[in-house]
Design a protein around this nucleic acid. Structure first.
Length: 467
RNA sequence: GGCGUGAUGGCCGAGCGGUUAGGCACGGGUCUGCAAAACCUGUUACACCGGUUCAACUCCGGUUCACGCCUCCA
């Protein structure tokens, strides 16, 4: 499997440091608000990555952090007049609920910043001992990028040419260099009761240090894969590398992968611009998690994705086509003869195409093309009646294999209640009596109950209509 | 200013030096009581200007436009 490594700016064969065990860390949410659709693009990308690694035979240990202490969570909790824990718990719960809705697999660990303060302090202590970090007069601790010669290697920034920008705030005069970043922030009135003791006095950790502390705790000082959105490349990931490698003297991460942003109807989306959609907003418009997942996963992760409601409509139609195909195969399995046969060539081709596409830096559009070619050819064969029960069964199994990666093929089973069944029976009776008016009336009635009925050679079939 | 992306048919979205990507939408047709699905079929695109090449959407140069990052936004 080849992946694009941000660190080397090249496509590289993924070779884990330890056998077939991939240890990966992905930057998780800051739990100060509901996550938006752009955040979920990253999480769905990471889910695709972890699922495909497993599908490819790797063992995966995946860590995703929860940032539950930073400026925004503190500000939010104070505004809401609740404790930091109470405030962030609400968004943690919402986050996990959203992951479930999008059928995102659980990581092995979800460490929280607030429960890893000692680990962070240990790293900062080491950095001070090594002379790459320094205390300021107010009790904050900063990392001195001048002491880390590799600084800028991930983002490919030449710090010597950077001038202090307008965003270097007045209150950061404590720093030796404008580009130095905080490892520990001295206590400020605005922090309320959010405070920890440290060898440098009371305060709280800087942002970047949590990821170094928690990734190394669960994955070791050097691990395989670290991912996030492209906006994390600088400064967040650059700073993680600096503080981690300065502390351990070892390479921090072998492969870095970053997913591109998502735009909404062609416009940049961000919390600061306020034009973001949460999953709640989208569901309120009648779309499902499955449809959202399809949209988010179907573009190549390293390309900007244009999210729109038209795209969700397209996803719905595409999924209906896939569902239909599965149903047709299943009908052959239950009806057709079995006992011999193998995976038909048109399925085998899809398997090869699917794997080859994803092996190539997770090229999902091509993988889906392979899948849809299978659907097309399979439908032709089904029309011609040229598929055996074995072939259908093996093809269905292949789809199940694909779904280990895709996570959107399996449908939630829709339960047909008895009143609906009764209507279908009545309509069938009307049809047999060639009472078309009654038949159509019942069809409309079923539609109002949310069901579409299709007349097939095997009898009427029900399909749940989207809300 | 520095670094880096991208510009593909109505929409989304891959791709490669020569062969129909794929999905959605739309038109025509087959099938069907009607409908749906499926299949067949049609509209056949690669921002612009040069260059390299037998051949460029695909490589090189330039132009225009859009976008991202440059200290805490996935």
């Amino acid at each position: 499997m080849k992946i694009y490594n941000t660190l080397t700016r090249q496509l590289e064969e993924l070779v884990p440091l330890d056998g077939n065990h991939v240890r990966m860390y992905t930057c998780g949410p800051t739990v100060y608000d509901y996550a938006h659709i752009g955040n979920f693009r990253a999480y769905v990308f990471e889910d695709l990555l972890r699922r495909y690694l497993k599908y490819s035979g790797f063992r995966v240990t995946h860590v995703m952090n929860l940032t539950d202490v930073d400026d925004k969570t503190i500000r939010g909790s104070r505004q809401a007049n609740v404790s930091l824990d109470d405030y962030t718990r609400k968004y943690k719960d919402a986050f996990f609920g959203d992951l479930k809705t999008l059928n995102i697999e659980s990581a092995e660990y979800y460490p929280e910043a607030t429960t890893h303060i000692p680990e962070m302090i240990a790293i900062i202590t080491k950095l001070i001992e090594k002379g790459v970090a320094y205390r300021s007069d107010d009790g904050s601790v900063y990392f001195s990028i001048a002491k880390f010669t590799d600084y800028g290697k991930l983002a490919h920034l030449d710090m010597s040419g950077l001038r202090a920008g307008a965003r270097v705030a007045q209150d950061e005069y404590e720093k030796e260099s404008a580009a130095d970043f905080a490892l520990w922030k001295a206590y400020d009135e605005k922090d309320g009761d959010v405070v920890w003791d440290s060898p440098w006095g009371r305060g709280r950790p800087g942002w970047h240090i949590e990821c170094s502390a928690m990734s190394m705790k669960y994955l070791g000082e050097t691990f395989d894969l670290h991912t996030g959105g492209i906006d994390n490349i600088f400064p967040h990931h650059e700073d993680e590398i600096a503080q981690s490698e300065a502390a351990t003297g070892k390479p921090f991460v072998k492969y870095w992968m970053h997913c591109a942003h998502l735009v909404v109807e062609g416009r940049k989306m961000s919390k600061s611009l306020g034009n973001f959609h949460t999953l709640r907003d989208i569901f309120a418009r009648g779309y499902s998690g499955r449809e959202v997942r399809y949209v988010l996963i179907s573009a190549q992760y390293s390309q900007t994705l244009n999210f729109s409601f038209a795209a969700l409509d397209g996803a719905r139609a595409s999924l209906a086509r896939l569902d239909e195909f599965r149903d047709r195969l299943a009908a052959v399995v239950s009806a057709g003869p079995r006992g011999f046969g193998e995976l038909p060539a048109w399925s085998e081709n899809a398997r090869k195409g699917f794997n080859a596409a994803l092996d190539n830096d997770l090229n999902m559009p091509e993988a889906l093309a392979a899948l849809f070619e299978m659907v097309h050819e399979g439908n032709r064969r089904l029309n011609a009646g040229g598929i055996t029960g074995d072939q259908a069964e093996l093809s269905l199994k292949l789809l199940d294999e694909f779904d280990r990666v895709l996570g959107f093929l399996a449908k939630g089973g829709a339960h047909v209640d008895s009143a609906v069944e009764k209507l279908v029976d009545e309509r069938q009776a009307a049809r047999q009596a060639k009472n078309w008016a009654e038949s159509d009336r019942i069809r409309n009635e079923l539609a109002e109950l949310g069901w579409e009925v299709k007349d097939t050679p095997q009898g009427p079939k029900l399909k749940k209509l989207p809300k």
